[in-house]
Design a protein around this nucleic acid. Structure first.
Lengths: 162, 162
DNA sequence: TATTGTTATACTCTATAACTATA
DNA sequence: TATAGTTATAGAGTATAACAATA
């Protein structure tokens, strides 16, 4: 048998010591939690890239969207819907208020509660954010296919109830 | 038409003011990033529940598994494979060393680098962790179905390359 | 000059306890 | 007594810059 025949493996790149060494992950490769974390990091990076000009974090945008679709909710309602601690919600909301996106108003029927609504500026920001975010979802669709993306959303939704 | 007929909707629970108010998420419902984050939180909670007795974080377990399947890797190799900053890896690794799970050894060929391997105790911990983790994956399979789980892993893997 | 591991530091998220004002 | 919002604080996880040892 002749050495270096045409069927031989291509020579490794001359023992390039700066090349990253290939690593076996073992069963980690099929840990759903591991795959979720890596995928979430990718999508998060995509989010920050797509929405950079607005300077909104995913959490902030989710709060704006919930208020937009449910004007008059209390802070506790928003926290319960999005799984945010009330204590962490306060500064987040105050920032949205400082930007002129949201308004807090004492609820007359229960003066302990604050009722939330968006300003016109806030609604414009949501509209702009949605348009920018659409590009990210398009990128995801190109990556997974339209049916793949739908399947993923459905599977993830089931997983929330684990 | 008769009121309160047998086909009428069941009466709402007497305006229970302590019940969480139902909330519309709007387009957020179909944000892949949002669904990823919520699903990841669920699985993370499941991980902590399943591996509580070992007291290993997902990051620590992933490091142990990579070392187990690639004994002799350097710290930088592990960091590159798992997307960890070298600066953050140092204390994480030192903790695994303090537990008696891993060993750092200067690589003679390049005395700047440390070569990593597991102790017997470390290999036992990985085996125990895998057994506990298997329960979590079984829970996930019950939630998604076996084919659903496989599809999810494949979709998430594609998404990493977004 | 460049790289490995390290330290220090900072920033974001998240979690808990305690306070206030209302109920 | 209990609840809504707030404050303070602490702990993860992650990011950057700078340093010593080594190449």
């Amino acid at each position: 048998m002749r050495m270096r025949s045409t069927r031989a493996k291509p020579a490794p790149p001359a023992a390039d010591s700066t090349a990253p060494r290939p690593v076996h992950l073992g069963p980690l490769r099929e840990f759903v939690g591991y795959r979720l974390r890596r995928a979430q990091l990718s999508v998060l990076a995509g989010f920050e890239l797509a929405l950079r000009e607005l300077g909104l974090s995913p959490g902030q945008l989710s709060v704006l969207m919930v208020i937009a679709h449910n004007e008059g909710l209390t802070q506790s309602d928003v926290c319960a819907a999005l799984g945010i601690q009330r204590a962490n919600f306060t500064p987040l909301l105050h920032d949205l208020e400082a930007r002129g996106y949201a308004i807090r108003e004492v609820l007359p029927a229960d003066r302990r509660s604050n009722t939330l609504r968006l300003t016109l500026l806030g609604r414009e920001a949501v509209a702009r954010a949605l348009a920018l975010h659409e590009r990210l979802e398009k990128r995801i669709t190109r990556c997974l296919g339209a049916t793949g993306r739908s399947q993923l959303i459905e599977l993830l939704q089931k997983l929330e109830a684990l």
